[in-house]
Design a protein around this nucleic acid. Structure first.
Length: 607
RNA sequence: GGGGAUGUAGCUCAAUUGGUUAGAGCACCGGCCUGUCACGCCGGAGGUUACGGGUUCGAGCCCCGCCAUCCUCGCCA
């Protein structure tokens, strides 16, 4: 039994007894044979009732477990009659004696299956209308689960997730504190800053026409805390981004936000690895070897088509430019001639395991991601099979074989297109094929760091560079000279933690050198005046004695999702939003009345 | 904003090529039952097939529109 219940039981003993209150002495998950003979009281929800006329059984449920209660004739006709009225999800208190079950009547599926509670007193705290779905029944559809979230959250399989989330939160907080980090809260009502995602805005009543913005992350505050000398900061921070949602993306989410002073990237990475090792051990039982593998951004994009590759399986991409150029196959030739790329990967055993229909579906999938086609080649004893095979003469087929180290029964998947499209399509195909063919153990985890991201990315639409991470990132020292000559080649002191192909977190060493910062601003198309206007408070802080500093933010929800074995981030957020940002339980976002609008001096424009 | 999937009883699902009165299990209601634990047995009620149009002798099924949920591209670390 958890200690807080014992504490409450003691502390309330002397308090005045409310009428009809029957306080529990135990939870529904803890009674065993050693409790036989005790008089106890349980509180909980009716999970199931079985009425035999002369004998009534109730399964009583709370978050600790289920205990069978039996109402025998000897308890009195009146008590039995009232027990017979109980229905699913009624909330009751039962007092009685713990009894050993009759021989042969034990239930091995219940932790409490050796005993039952012989009821002597029953209090119905509350009845329940018939629930829209059964708490222990088949999984209702998600729309219904979110509408009746209070019932969904009552389901044991869901409670398991939130108990895990709680324990991970506690463990993380303790680890950070033990490593000397100070937890500081930063504001939710802040100032809108450019760059990054769209802000959620909150209108100011006092200052009509002005708005607060909910934080996309505590980024600027945590840097200011470093200037203020807090040295090691962390926060379990709620962040808000008003962008379209995905299976792993919610408009408000929780991140472990970290910042450290007097550090280089190695220090941040090493510190986070200690945390990852501790959590992995506690919640997955796995002992990780340190350091975790690290890959340079350019290498993983080349080898896997993604900056967050799922490395639980191999399926490494190969470049085929030279072979494609030597072929007569128009799809390949045209791609090469127009400066595009031809790349692909080998699926071990895929030639025999994937049917023609599977391959057609993969082709369709590739098309939906922007590819004009998908070249597939089944590797046979000495030849290739597939629509494109006839365009590849035997000597070239041999070279393909060697390039992929292909064996009979394998499958080659090849895409000819731009760098961006081949990346996108091939990385998506990698994960889909790996999942379809079960090329990895879904209960295992793969952790890696992706490092040396580009500092800047060219934004064709805006005609300027945009910060790849954020505008206060420090370039790699050896790339500093490229800021003037070839800014796109400058690599950043940036690092992402990737778990199973999910971006679990990312961070950078910050730029505390005003000269370098000024240069970056100018590349971003910001004049000193504009930079001052937008980030003045941070720049001001950086001029008042800023230590070298850097940090990271880990996506906590995604981490819980992975460790809970979930495929959807909503399932580890107690009250999540739908993909369109609504809350089906509360109806948010809702309208507000005219008086609130007037107070804020806002008017709704019909679109 | 684009692409895709789904929507049938309270829930989970079925319903041949467009063809009789849209079915099953669970839940619900009534009855019986002293050892069940997915209790069992008997009986009952429950449907605007998301919604709005259309085609057809006839639509759950085909067409158009629309709403909701999910996945995804764009977007977003």
């Amino acid at each position: 039994m958890s200690s807080w219940i014992r504490f409450r039981l003691k502390s309330t003993k002397a308090a005045g007894r409310a009428i009809n209150m029957l306080k529990r002495t135990c939870t529904c998950g803890e009674l065993t044979k050693s409790d036989v003979g005790r008089e106890v009281a349980l509180n909980g929800w009716v999970d199931a009732y079985r009425d035999f006329g002369g004998l009534v059984f109730i399964d009583l449920r709370d978050r600790f477990g289920i205990t069978q209660v039996v109402f025998e004739p000897s308890a009195g006709a009146e008590l039995q009659a009232r027990a017979r009225e109980l229905r699913a999800e009624y909330v009751v208190g039962v007092r009685g004696t713990v009894a050993e079950r009759l021989p042969g009547k034990e239930n091995p599926n219940l932790a409490t299956g050796q005993i039952e509670l012989r009821a002597a007193e029953l209090v119905v705290f509350n009845e329940s209308v018939t629930p829209p779905f059964e708490i222990q029944g088949p999984e209702p559809n998600e729309e219904l689960r979110l509408t009746y979230r209070y019932l969904d959250l009552r389901r044991p399989s869901v409670q398991r997730v939130f108990l895990l989330r709680h324990r991970m939160l506690q463990s993380m907080r303790n680890s950070m504190s033990d490593m000397g980090f100070v937890e500081v809260e930063t504001p939710m009502l802040g100032r809108s800053t450019p760059e990054g995602a769209r802000d959620f805005l909150v209108p100011s009543r006092v200052h009509a026409g002005r708005f607060y913005a909910l934080p996309q992350s505590p980024q600027l505050y945590k840097q200011i805390l470093m200037v203020a000398g807090y040295d090691r900061y962390f926060q379990i921070a709620r962040c808000f981004r008003d962008e379209d949602l995905r299976a792993n993306r919610q408009p408000e989410f929780t991140q472990l936000d970290v910042e450290m002073s007097f550090v280089e990237d190695e220090d941040v990475i090493a510190t986070m690895e200690r945390l990852v090792v501790a959590l992995a051990k506690e919640f997955t039982g796995e002992e990780l070897n340190l350091p975790l593998p690290r890959y340079a951004y350019h290498d993983v994009v080349e080898r896997y088509g993604s900056d967050r590759p799922d490395l639980r399986y191999d399926l490494e991409l190969k470049d085929l430019a030279d072979l494609a150029a030597a072929s007569e196959f128009q799809v390949f030739r045209q791609a090469i001639d127009s400066g595009k790329r031809v790349r692909g990967f080998r699926v071990p055993g895929g030639g025999s395991k994937l049917s023609r229909k599977d391959l057609d579906q993969l082709t369709e999938y590739a098309g939906s991601l922007g590819a004009k086609g998908l070249v597939w080649l089944r590797v046979e004893e000495s030849t290739f099979a597939g629509p494109a095979a006839k365009f590849l003469p035997a000597p070239l087929q041999t070279q393909f074989r060697e390039r992929f180290d292909a064996k009979q029964g394998d499958l080659l998947l090849i895409v000819a297109d731009t760098q961006a499209v081949t990346n996108q399509v091939l990385s998506a195909l990698r994960s889909r094929v790996a999942a379809d063919l079960k090329l990895y153990d879904p209960s295992k985890f793969h952790y890696s760091w992706i490092i040396r991201f580009p500092l800047l990315a060219w934004d064709a639409e805006e005609g300027r560079y945009a910060a790849e991470h954020h505008p206060f990132t420090m370039p790699l020292p050896e790339d500093l000279h490229l800021l003037d000559t070839d800014p796109a080649k400058v690599r950043a002191q940036a690092y992402d933690l990737v778990i199973n192909g999910e971006e679990a977190g990312g961070g950078t060493i910050r730029c505390h050198d005003p000269k370098i910062q000024a240069k970056i601003f100018s590349l971003l198309g910001l004049t000193p005046e504009q930079a001052e206007e937008k980030f003045g408070f941070l720049l001001g802080a950086l001029r008042h004695g800023a230590p070298p500093h850097g940090g990271i933010a880990l996506g906590f929800d995604r981490w819980v999702m992975l460790y809970a074995g979930l495929e959807n981030i909503r399932d580890c957020i107690a009250f999540p939003k739908t993909a369109r940002g609504t809350d089906l339980m509360t109806g948010a976002p809702g309208t507000v009345d005219a008086r609130q609008m007037r107070e804020l001096k806002l008017r709704f424009l019909e679109s």
